Amino acid sequence: MQIFVKTLTGKTITSEVEPSDTIENVKAKIQDKEGIPPDQQRLIFAGKQLEDGRTLSDYNIQKESTLHLVLR
């Protein structure tokens, strides 16, 4: 499924993921596309910071959901 990751600069990254993918996994995909190390990434969805060990389905993230990427 496709999800969108919006950066603070307003850029939107499209990523191909599975509901069973972990947040860590998603951060790795963002690193592949943007070159941002996962340890600098914080992903936010519905006002919550997403934890690395959890999966997209844990957070009820569905296709075409938009996550927000904040850098630390």
Rank of each mutant, 00 (worst) to 15 (best):
D39R: 10
Y59I: 02
G53R: 09
T7V: 08
L50R: 00
N60C: 06
L43N: 01
V70L: 13
D52S: 07
S20F: 10
N60D: 09
G53I: 07
K11D: 07
E18N: 13
Q62H: 10
V70P: 01
T7G: 06
G35R: 05
I3N: 00
R72H: 11
R54H: 12
T14G: 04
D58L: 03
H68W: 15
Q41F: 15
I61R: 01
Q31R: 14
Q31M: 14
D39M: 09
T22C: 03
I44N: 05
L71F: 10
V5Q: 00
K29N: 05
G35N: 07
T9R: 11
D58H: 12
I36G: 03
E18H: 14
V26H: 00
G53E: 10
H68M: 13
R42L: 15
I30C: 02
I61G: 01
G47D: 06
Q40P: 02
F45H: 06
E16L: 13
D32S: 11
D32L: 14
Q41A: 07
K33L: 13
Q49P: 10
N60F: 08
D58C: 03
T22I: 04
A46V: 06
P37I: 06
Q49L: 15
L69Y: 01
L71Q: 07
I36D: 03
L50I: 03
F4H: 09
V70K: 08
T12A: 04
D52T: 05
K27W: 05
F4E: 03
E18G: 08
G53S: 11
G47E: 05
T22S: 07
Q49K: 08
R72Q: 11
A28S: 11
F45K: 02
L56M: 05
F45D: 01
Q41W: 11
D39F: 11
T14H: 06
E34A: 14
T66N: 04
I23N: 01
Y59H: 03
A28M: 14
S15A: 15
L43G: 00
K6M: 10
I13T: 03
T55F: 06
L8K: 11
E64I: 02
K29D: 06
D32Y: 11
P38C: 10
Q41K: 03
K6V: 15
V70Y: 12
T9L: 10
Q62T: 14
S15V: 15
S65E: 07
I44V: 10
E64A: 10
R54Y: 12
R42C: 14
T14K: 10
H68N: 08
G47C: 06
L67P: 01
K29A: 07
I36L: 06
P38Q: 14
A46D: 13
L69F: 03
I36E: 02
I3Y: 00
I13E: 02
L69A: 02
T12W: 10
T66D: 03
R72W: 13
K6Q: 10
D21P: 01
I44P: 01
F45Y: 13
P37V: 06
S57Y: 10
S65A: 13
L67W: 00
P19Y: 07
L69W: 00
A28L: 15
G35V: 03
I61K: 00
V70G: 06
L71P: 08
L50S: 00
I3S: 01
T12C: 12
S15W: 14
R54S: 08
I61Y: 00
A28W: 12
M1L: 06
A46P: 00
L69V: 05
L71D: 06
T14A: 09
K33T: 12
E51T: 06
I3L: 06
Q31F: 15
Y59G: 00
P37M: 08
T55V: 06
L71C: 07
V5R: 00
Q62E: 11
E18R: 14
L56A: 02
K63Q: 12
N25S: 15
I36Y: 13
L69M: 09
E64G: 15
D39G: 10
I61P: 00
G10R: 03
Q2C: 09
T7K: 04
V26A: 01
G35I: 02
S65K: 04
I13L: 09
P38T: 15
F4I: 07
H68V: 13
P38F: 14
G47M: 04
E34Q: 06
Q49G: 06
R54M: 12
V17P: 00
G53P: 06
I61T: 00
G47P: 00
K63W: 09
V70C: 08
G10A: 04
N25W: 10
K27H: 02
E18K: 14
K33F: 08
Q2G: 06
S15E: 13
Q62R: 10
K48T: 12
Q62C: 05
Q31H: 14
R42V: 15
Q2Y: 13
I13D: 02
Q62F: 11
E16T: 12
D52P: 06
L67R: 00
Q40C: 10
H68C: 10
E24T: 08
Y59D: 01
V5C: 03
G10Y: 03
S57A: 13
V70I: 13
Q40T: 09
S65G: 05
S57D: 09
L50C: 02
I44A: 05
P19W: 08
S15L: 15
E16G: 04
Q40S: 09
I23F: 02
P38W: 14
K6S: 07
P37R: 09
I44Q: 06
N25C: 09
R42T: 15
V17G: 03
S65T: 07
L56G: 01
L43K: 00
R54Q: 09
S20V: 05
T12Y: 10
S57G: 11
D21R: 00
K29V: 07
R72T: 12
L69N: 01
T55C: 04
L8G: 11
K29H: 09
L56D: 00
I36C: 04
D52H: 05
K33E: 09
V26T: 02
N25F: 11
F45R: 01
L67F: 04
E64C: 10
D52L: 04
K6F: 08
T12I: 15
G53K: 11
R42Q: 13
K6I: 14
K27E: 01
P37S: 09
P37G: 06
I44T: 09
I44C: 11
D52F: 03
N60K: 10
G47V: 02
G35W: 03
R72M: 14
I30N: 01
G35C: 05
E51I: 08
Y59S: 02
L67D: 00
E64S: 11
G53H: 14
A46M: 14
K29I: 12
P19E: 08
T9P: 04
E51P: 02
V17E: 01
I23M: 03
D21M: 11
T66H: 13
N60W: 04
T14F: 08
T12Q: 06
I30M: 03
K33P: 04
K48S: 08
D39I: 09
M1H: 05
Q41V: 12
M1K: 03
M1Q: 03
A46S: 09
T66S: 04
K27Y: 06
K48M: 13
A28K: 15
L8C: 15
P37H: 10
L43A: 00
N25G: 09
Q62P: 09
L56S: 00
T14V: 14
Q40G: 05
R42N: 13
P19M: 09
F45T: 01
E16S: 10
P38D: 05
I13F: 14
E18I: 11
P19D: 06
D58E: 11
L8F: 13
L69G: 00
Q49C: 12
F4Y: 12
K6L: 13
N25T: 14
G10H: 04
S20Q: 10
S65Q: 08
E24C: 07
Q41S: 06
L56I: 10
L50G: 00
D58A: 06
L8E: 14
T7N: 05
I36Q: 03
I30T: 02
I44K: 04
